[in-house]
Nucleic acid binder design. Structure first.
Lengths: 110, 110
DNA sequence: TTCATTTATCGTAATATTGCAATAAACAAT
DNA sequence: ATTGTTTATTGCAATATTACGATAAATGAA
């Protein structure tokens, strides 16, 4: 089969996993870092910098846009991508909350 | 093809993406939360709680163990899983560092 | 208009992931 | 030794992801 219904899990579990999944590819991490680094946000330069073919980069950008982490501004034939800082903060907070859940000490094992 | 060589990316890009990938499934998020919630760490109870077949849970546990987020203690026929707090803190810090990179304001677009 | 530039989309091949039934392996209890 | 319990592994089918060539779509420049 290979399909788990999302109804099996809570909304927040699906949300966090969905975002983590998009972050789960080094090219997309590289794209985000490159957008941040190049203060003025970049476009097809990502193809040069990341080293994947243009359609591939475009596809990764689409996924990052889908979860709202980046925005794209059309400027003539070019598209200027940049971080959506509002969403960036939200996602930061999401991971923060997840990892800050207190881990109780365990005497029984481990 | 469908394969990007990991040599294309930095060590830390691959590391972060690799961990995010494992977190990128709601069942694995649910498993982590359940382990945390059940103070005394649990075993095959996860099958009951998460609602997937035993081999599926076992497989997800394996992936979580691979990145070191959980440990498994064999206790007779049972295996007691719990959070590897040391690694947990490391991963928390990893995401923290990633999301805390300063996002420069952009006047050009977006 | 015609040509060059840039990005998105389509189509497709290669690969990876997911889920589970069947089964093995390890142990406890009788 | 046999039985029951628990977990890991194997094998496989269904699906998803990834990468890229080809192509379309949109714009700017000549």
């Amino acid at each position: 089969m290979g399909l788990t219904k999302s109804e099996m899990f809570t909304r927040s579990q699906n949300e966090l996993a969905g975002i983590a999944k998009v972050l789960g590819h080094p090219a997309r991490i590289a794209i985000l870092q490159e957008i941040i680094k190049s203060k003025s946000c970049i476009c097809g330069d990502l193809v040069q910098e990341v080293g994947l073919a243009q359609p591939t980069i475009s596809q990764h950008l689409k996924e990052l846009k889908n979860i709202g982490l980046i925005k794209g501004d059309i400027e003539g034939t070019r598209v200027c991508y940049c971080i959506n800082t509002k969403k960036w903060e939200e996602v930061k907070q999401l991971f923060h909350s997840f990892f800050d859940t207190h881990i109780p000490m365990n005497d029984d094992c481990c």
